[in-house]
Design a protein around this nucleic acid. Structure first.
Lengths: 285, 285
DNA sequence: GACTGGACGGAATAAATATTCTATTCTCAA
DNA sequence: TTGAGAATAGAATATTTATTCCGTCCAGTC
């Protein structure tokens, strides 16, 4: 038998698999080389297809695919396929390297270190994700709505509260009139009663959604106050009350979701609004 | 029978499918809505998983997935799945590319976009920096100090306030006793008067340092309360009052410093402390 | 309060799947 | 040319898969 090569590590990610294939390509038997060529040329097909369909496309037998996989140390074709699928999931260039850099650093030696690394990695992932999930056009609309408002109402509870807390700080510095909602219990309704169509609101809520925030957003929407919202699902109850809404899925570690992407988003929105106002004001001078 | 809706077109790509789902979301029965939410929140899982695995993850029956697909005009679950797979093949162009496409048209649009990108980039830079600037041993010591405290006092003002705000939320979830300092003016001194050597404090302050925070940290230190602090300079006045302190320089954009690294740090510290406590508690059982 | 129609859960089923096995073919050296 | 060993094709097999079907449940209506 000349099958699984135990002496060499089984590739765990697409890049190293690709390298291994290229390296051994010359010594591969005819049909296996045929498979190798097809696999590297049509990685998407390998990821999605069945053994039968791929075999037909590559003009080999299904069993050849299994032998190919086993030749590189995998248990069968299916486990090889996982590598090709993983490649499509996290097609974030640069992320792998960063993660590898993290796992090699001093923190990994201590027990609390892995927690530390985990949160840094989660924050990175969140930020990688944000660029593709926020549409520039929607962002622009949100900026326009908030820049045109007399007073910006900030609605957030619990986990989202730090986000609006930062925005409040920044708006204060930038001389943009704002009003936080939900700090002291009881007077929220009175505050919201003052909001009108000339104002605007920014609401943040992640699942599990604080019912208070949702209701307040609804109330504002019913009073013709344009609402911009930040949430983590297209199914968020916030979405239906909002003129513009952003779906932002934060990566998590140990069950605690990162706030990095939300924070970056909030900072960008805040500064963009202030910038827009400054320019509008100059035009009227 | 009320099945396939021939009058309406079957979505052929992911975007129109998503739009259709969102549109009909309100009228969907309970389980189908559950599937809808899961599908839009975890599109990758739908693309790769089997009906059984997805059903388990979404907490429904496999047959529900089939009904869901048929509800939207597909023949079965498999044909719906093809849409989700196609999405991964032809990745949607990221924000960067879309932004570049926009840049030719309108200058004002470009402006908001560059602000957005700027903050995301700054956040990335901050996170890249954090691993090298925080010493694992110091982190370990900080965890030990806070894990051993009866009550953890959180001291932060202004820009740092969102950080302690998040920690308060997380400590609450994790059943760690804490006390925020500086929320309502006037009673701070009374709160601090209760702190003793068995407690500990975590103070955050970046330049320009809020004198209040600095004084409170000094007061705590003089009362033999161990202080852990997070700041942005070795010359920070906080440092001299602290048992352990961390220097964390955040990258900035347009003069506004990122909070991503501080946030990641705070989350890691919070969870590490809770974890440590949990372990200590188990040892004494 | 009974009736009706849709929604649901769960078992049954038929198709499709990856893998294994074996006979045959090919390769290369003596 | 012949013999030995690997490589291959293709059928057989044991899972796993999506789907169908039917009894039950639930909400709304008269």
């Amino acid at each position: 038998m000349a099958e699984t090569d135990n002496s060499i590590e089984i590739p765990q990610d697409f890049d190293s698999l690709k390298a291994t294939i290229l390296e051994r390509k010359a010594q591969l038997p005819k049909r296996l080389r045929q498979v190798a060529a097809y696999a590297l040329d049509h990685p998407d097909e390998i990821a999605f297809g069945t053994a039968a369909s791929i075999a037909t496309a590559a003009d080999v037998q299904p069993s050849t695919l299994v032998r190919f996989a086993q030749h590189f140390g995998f248990e069968g074709f299916s486990s090889l396929q996982l590598i090709f699928r993983a490649r499509l999931r996290e097609r974030t260039p640069g992320y792998d390297e960063r993660l590898r850099a993290l796992s090699g650093n001093d923190h990994s030696k201590l027990e609390s270190g892995s927690i530390f690394n985990g949160f840094v990695a989660a924050a990175h992932r969140s930020l990688d994700n944000i660029a593709s999930s926020v549409e520039p056009e929607a962002f622009e609309r949100a900026v326009n709505i908030l820049a045109g408002a007399e007073t910006i109402y900030l609605v957030a509870k619990r986990r989202s509260y730090p986000i609006s807390g930062y925005m409040a700080y920044a708006f204060g510095k930038l001389r943009v009139r704002y009003q936080m909602v939900g700090t002291a219990a009881g007077i929220d309704d009175d505050i919201l009663a003052m909001a009108g169509p000339k104002d605007a609101a920014f609401a943040v809520s992640f699942s599990p959604y604080a019912s208070e925030s949702v209701n307040q957003a609804k109330l504002l929407a019913s009073r013709k106050v344009p609402v911009v919202s930040l949430t983590d699902s297209a199914f968020s109850p916030l979405a239906e009350s909002s003129r513009v809404w952003f779906e932002l899925v934060e990566a998590d570690h140990a069950g605690f979701r990162s706030l990095s992407a939300s924070m970056a988003f909030a900072m960008a929105l805040t500064v963009a609004v202030a910038e827009k106002r400054r320019r509008n004001a100059r035009e009227y001078e």
